[in-house]
């Protein structure tokens, strides 16, 4: 199963959600933000090398950290040399080696955001209530639909009191999981750890578990 974690805007927490879902689903997280990688790189080849034909996709997966990761380089030269059309094949190669893949998508609507959705079987949309622009989320959902990555769930990230869960569920037509703002999420994220490992009983950790269960339900439905 290949899951794309998407959302039109930057800074809404796509990478955090991808890392958490990677931990929950025991999946490899692929940092597909070719221009501005977000998940801490580790030693060895990265996605730029893979897309430039210099490294094997499965061999570029690093299992050193708490979540298996295919990191992405941060240099302009690397981004220039990386062929975005090779992403689909690369992610599929990782899937055949590891079974489950979560792709952390870049922001925006260019081909680098579209390519993970083309590769994916399903998608999770991340939106932040503070910056929530329904139009952006709707556009990303349309793109995901066109590219056959059905919307499994919406992660309404860093919510405060009374998140607009119901309104967003009606607008986007998918289950919405509200993840409350919590320092423990950002603190553990800075160390490269999912909050579910650091504070498994915390509210956000439980919510990420719920989000993963929604994804699992959709994956079960498509398999039937």
């Amino acid at each position: 199963m290949i899951l794309a974690v998407a959302g039109g805007k930057g800074g809404v927490g796509k990478s955090t959600v991808a890392l958490e879902l990677g931990a929950e689903l025991d999946a490899v997280v692929v940092d597909a933000d070719l221009g501005m990688a977000d998940l801490a790189a580790r030693r060895g080849p990265d996605l730029h090398d893979v897309l430039a034909g210099r490294a094997d996709p499965a061999e570029a997966v690093s299992e050193d950290g708490p979540v298996a990761l295919l990191p992405c380089g941060r240099t302009l030269a690397g981004a220039r040399a990386a062929d975005p059309t090779k992403l689909v094949g690369a992610v599929e190669a990782v899937e055949s080696a590891y079974e489950r893949v979560v792709i952390d998508c870049p922001a925006g609507m260019a081909a680098d955001a579209g390519m993970p959705l083309l590769a994916a079987d399903a998608s999770v949309l991340v939106a932040s209530p503070r910056e929530f622009a329904l139009a952006d989320a709707l556009r990303t959902r349309e793109l995901a639909r066109e590219l056959d990555a059905g919307l499994a769930a919406v992660a309404l990230n860093r919510t405060g009191e009374n998140p607009p869960t119901e309104r967003i569920r009606r607008a986007l037509g998918a289950p919405v999981v509200a993840i409350p703002e919590d320092d423990r999420v950002s603190r553990s994220r800075r160390q490269g750890w999912p909050v579910s490992e650091v504070a498994p009983d915390s509210e956000p950790a439980l919510r990420f578990g719920e989000l993963a269960a929604e994804v699992g339900r959709l994956a079960g439905r498509t398999r039937d």
Partner: peptide, 15 residues
């Protein structure tokens, strides 16, 4: 769509 279709319609993302 193919990956090439995606680049054609959404634009080349490389710097």
């Amino acid at each position: 769509a193919t990956p090439e279709d995606v680049v054609r319609s959404l634009g080349d993302p490389r710097p």
